[in-house]
């Protein structure tokens, strides 16, 4: 095990310990409070809020993945080719929209609660996944595609057997970006009444309780870093499996 992996594991264990028994960490956070304010968030179970946060992130990312990969397949088939360059520039332009703005604009249309957050996360998550899936599906090496057609693979066989497996690491990289953005934007979602860790931070800000702010910030920050690391590791594994790493080095 590398030192990095040991540190990550230790942090994960610490995080789990804090979520399962937050009160035992009260002495650590007590110095940050003033006028006898509670050192540990007391308006709900931190564990429940964390799980709800992760669940929203997961659902949104899953939905984005299914729809974005589906769309990217459509526009890279012969009958959808006409939409390829337009959809590519739309995905590009779309990503200049700040995720917060997407969330803010979703509220007038969808109202308050978890749903608008979920839908905003879903919509925003489409963009990086779609863009990466397009890159992956259109960058299959020419000779490989040529050989696949020359051997008599049908369009469907090429998609499933060649294009998607080769694009998988790039698609996963898009999923990682989308998941990290979703996790971050879900935090803001608490301002529109979604049940996420943002409410811990915002409760801390409104009551000037730095301990709350720190708790919320640490949990979200650690989750984001661990999630991103885990997905990066998976990405590297898949790239190696797909025989792409060595090929690139050669």
């Amino acid at each position: 095990m590398t030192p990095g992996a040991i540190v990550r594991l230790a942090i994960l264990i610490l995080l789990l310990a804090f979520l399962l028994a937050p009160q035992s960490f009260a002495p650590v956070f007590a110095p940050l409070t003033r006028f006898g304010a509670p050192p540990i968030y007391n308006q709900g179970s931190l564990l429940d809020i964390t799980l709800s946060h992760l669940w929203i992130t997961f659902l949104a990312t899953l939905a984005s993945t299914i729809v974005a990969v589906g769309l990217s397949i459509l526009v890279t088939r012969p009958f959808g080719k006409e939409f390829l360059s337009l959809s590519r520039s739309l995905a590009n332009v779309g990503q200049t929209f700040p995720p917060v703005a997407v969330l803010a604009l979703a509220v007038p249309v969808l109202g308050f609660g978890t749903e608008p957050t979920l839908i905003a996360l879903f919509l925003y998550g489409l963009l990086p996944i779609f863009e990466n899936a397009l890159t992956g599906l259109t960058n299959v090496p020419r000779d490989v595609d040529e050989a696949a057609r020359g051997m008599g693979m049908t369009g469907w066989q090429r998609l499933v057997g060649v294009e998607l497996p080769l694009a998988l690491p790039v698609i996963l990289s898009g999923i990682r970006v989308a998941a990290v953005i979703s996790l971050a934007t879900a935090t803001i979602g608490s301002t529109v009444a979604a049940r996420t860790l943002g409410e811990v931070i915002i409760a801390g800000l409104t009551t000037s309780n730095t301990a709350f702010v720190l708790q919320g910030g640490l949990i979200v920050g650690i989750l984001a870093v661990l999630l991103s690391d885990a997905l990066s590791a998976l990405e590297r594994l898949l790239a190696r499996r797909a025989g792409l790493t060595r090929r690139a080095e050669a």
Partner: peptide, 9 residues
């Protein structure tokens, strides 16, 4: 990767 509001906090 750290979400902005967390880093602000």
């Amino acid at each position: 990767t750290i979400p902005s509001i967390a880093l602000f906090g």
